[in-house]
Write a protein that binds this DNA or RNA. Structure first.
Length: 362
DNA sequence: AAGACGGGGTC
DNA sequence: GACCCAGTCTT
């Protein structure tokens, strides 16, 4: 289409939102915002952007942080590998690259957590390099306007859309073009109920003209969701201490903290709790003990029906069991008041919001 | 090429 | 319940 970029940029200049990261070309700010915005809506990411900029004003400040503190600030945003990669890349830039971000797509893409999209975004916005971004918005806009039904999550699809975007990009102003096409997808050419009636491209939009708006873009395969049953053990000593652990293994919530966990094949009933938990090893900081060796005084299940916590690939059935200990366990525990210092999964944060340890003390 | 990885919003 | 979000990394 002739003049696509001209019309698009015209639309953008009249309709764009004023967003904090649109007031700068500073690579640190742009990089930070792009990482936060991966698979994340602007409204959800915005508060995190503000708290990160305030807490870590530049890449050196972020590099000097402890990873646990970065994770704590990231708590609730999800996809926590982003936070770990963010910190690793900050250290790389601060200590190996003299505090200066790479200024080309090719070099940017070598950074941890920076893929094709993010490298293109930074290179274009900060350094005026004409490399096209292809995110979910771009897939939608281009598949509709050009009537392309190649699955967007396929290798041919990725190549085809990248090439088309690269062909369309305004070589003189790639920064504005890239942001314009994403903004257009986010606010006009939405997944559901797009504003086709006053769309500047409706006359030539293949999907609109052929009534295929709802069918594009095409995505292959559906993800299958696995059911898991989590039983969290909230230990409480007479001194008001509890036990937490950091999730080190691969899988969900890596790097975050949670309570000792008993995972079962199905929903665990109170009658079967003892037999199921007895052989469980409770991992302390320095040593570990079997559950059955602990001085358990009382077990109180916090809810009859499990809490359902949905992730993209898993459906979690979560129960919290309070385990009152009559004396110190021999394990190294923490005062419950300090729980707030640790990054925890949303489901635990939510539980803690209306749980009071004092109810179980004297 | 296919899965894994979070949490929240929309319809 | 299904789909999507300013995607990336691992298998």
């Amino acid at each position: 289409m002739l003049n696509f970029s001209k019309k698009l940029i015209h639309w953008y200049l009249q309709n764009k939102r004023e967003l904090p990261w649109r007031q700068t070309q500073d690579p640190y700010s742009i990089w930070l915002s792009e990482i936060i915005l991966q698979q994340t809506r602007v409204e959800q990411g915005m508060p995190y952007y503000f708290s990160f900029v305030e807490t870590y004003p530049d890449v050196k400040a972020l590099a000097a942080a402890r990873e646990d503190d970065v994770l704590k600030l990231w708590q609730g945003l999800g996809y926590y590998s982003r936070a770990r990669n963010l910190h690793a890349t900050a250290k790389k830039v601060a200590y190996d690259l003299n505090g200066v971000f790479p200024d080309t797509y090719k070099e940017l893409k070598k950074l941890k957590g920076v893929g094709d999209y993010t490298a293109s975004a930074i290179a274009s916005i900060c350094f005026n390099e004409a490399t096209a971004v292809v995110d979910g918005n771009v897939y939608r806009v281009l598949s509709r306007i050009y009537g392309i039904d190649t699955p967007i999550n396929s290798t041919p699809g990725a190549k085809e859309f990248k090439a088309l975007a690269q062909e369309l990009i305004d070589k003189k102003d790639p920064a504005t073009f890239n942001q314009a096409i994403m903004e257009f997808g986010a606010t006009q050419c939405k997944p559901k109920n797009p504003y086709c009636l006053h769309c500047p491209f409706s006359e030539s939009c293949v999907a609109f003209q052929q009534g295929r708006i709802a069918d594009l873009p095409v995505k292959k395969g559906k993800i299958k969701v696995r059911d898991r049953f989590f039983n969290y053990l909230i230990f409480i000593t007479p001194k008001g201490e509890t036990l937490i652990q950091q999730r080190k293994e691969k899988g969900i919530w890596r790097g975050l903290f949670d309570f000792p966990l008993l995972e079962t094949e199905k929903d665990l009933q109170k009658e079967h709790f003892r037999e199921s938990v007895n052989k469980l090893m409770i991992l302390g900081k320095d040593k570990s003990v079997k559950f059955e060796a602990l001085p358990v005084e009382e077990i109180i299940l916090q809810q009859r029906a499990p809490i359902i916590h949905k992730l993209s690939h898993q459906k979690l059935h979560v129960k919290f069991w309070v385990i009152k200990l009559s004396e110190a366990s021999g394990l190294q525990m923490i005062a419950y008041e300090r729980l707030g210092d640790f990054a925890v999964p949303r489901v635990i944060d939510r539980f803690l919001e209306d749980f009071d340890f004092k109810d179980f003390l004297e």
